[in-house]
């Protein structure tokens, strides 16, 4: 192939790439969540730290025996996080308003635009129309990017497994309950009715209603209504959210918005670069006799000159 033919090819290829590069699914930036998405409203003012939800989840998801039994309150001495053995944990926090310490259950927030989902290069995550963010262990390669990308530090990994390590996180009891319209195990067991299961849109109304009725019981904010593009699990609290271990600095933009800058640039590079550099090559070598002379090769090739 002659050099010029090649360059022509480059230009054509570049043009083709520009046509053939559709803006892919990162256009989801404005996705507002499925209208029928379910959710759970967690009213931390009602939570007494009984850990029944932990026990129920353990049973429902067939997780291994816990290291410390579920009725042992010594676990509150430290702040725990979700692990491969516990999809949900309850922590105790110190509030500085002199009242009894608040507790908060944590689990996957089931984001409207989950960071885990957008970051996964094999699409192991699915946001179901019921609102759950579920995970397919059959395709997961184990790159752990989802764990980096989750703003709530939820997914855990079974590092100890040599042959089948997987991401472990709350799946909203999707396969056993949510799919059939039933509330998750943790919600059902809660003796204080701190957890309310329902349509996400209804729960937001319910939350604001509770705040309106007893304004001195709550901070006027539903955590999860807007955070990170909105989440299916929502929190009400007596103290500001950061005092019960919720990150208030994460903002309302979903993770994907940060990455869009880069993703948007990709088709441009694919289109412009070939033409640009072919052009530079022509300019750089035009007036030189030995434009094609490669001194690394001692053979002289007749067809090049």
């Amino acid at each position: 192939m002659k050099r010029r033919d090649f360059l022509k090819g480059c230009l054509i290829g570049g043009a083709a790439a520009s046509l053939g590069a559709p803006s892919k699914s990162w256009a989801v930036g404005s996705f507002e969540g499925y209208p029928d998405a379910m959710g759970v409203l967690v009213d931390t003012t009602r939570c007494i730290g009984c850990r029944s939800c932990e026990a129920a989840c353990n049973k429902e998801q067939k997780l291994p025996e816990p290291d410390v039994p579920f009725d042992d309150t010594s676990v509150f001495k430290e702040k725990r996080r979700t692990t491969e053995k516990a999809y949900t944990v309850v922590n105790r926090y110190e509030a500085n308003d002199g009242q009894k310490p608040p507790y908060r259950k944590m689990q996957c927030m089931h984001c409207n635009e989950p960071g885990c989902l957008t970051s996964c290069f094999v699409n192991a995550y699915t946001k179901t129309k019921e609102g759950a963010v579920i995970y397919n262990g059959n395709v997961c390669v184990g790159c752990k990017t989802c764990m980096v990308a989750c703003p709530f530090n939820i997914p855990a990994y079974s590092y100890s497994s040599a042959f089948d390590p997987l991401v472990k996180k709350c799946i909203f009891c999707y396969h056993t309950r949510l799919k059939f319209g039933k509330p998750p195990a943790c919600v059902e067991i809660c003796p204080q009715e701190a957890l309310t299961f329902g349509l996400r849109s209804d729960l937001i109304k319910l939350g604001h209603e509770r705040i309106r009725q007893t304004p001195d019981r709550y901070v006027d904010h539903i955590y999860g209504e807007k955070e990170m593009g909105g989440t299916s699990w929502l929190y009400l609290s007596r103290v500001p959210a950061d005092q019960i271990g919720l990150d208030t600095t994460i903002g309302n933009e979903p993770v994907i918005s940060n990455v869009k800058d880069f993703l948007g640039m990709v088709p441009m590079v694919l289109t412009i670069w070939p033409a640009l550099f072919s052009g530079i090559h022509l300019l750089a070598t035009r007036n030189k006799d030995h434009g094609d002379d490669h001194h690394n090769h001692s053979e002289q090739e007749g067809d090049k000159k």
Binding site: S119, C120, F121, I256
Partner: peptide, 20 residues
Amino acid sequence: GQPWRLPFPMVVSFGPAAVL
């Protein structure tokens, strides 16, 4: 975690919106 699945993003399952 599962290195034997490295070719998955090329052949089995695609996540085209992911940087990785």
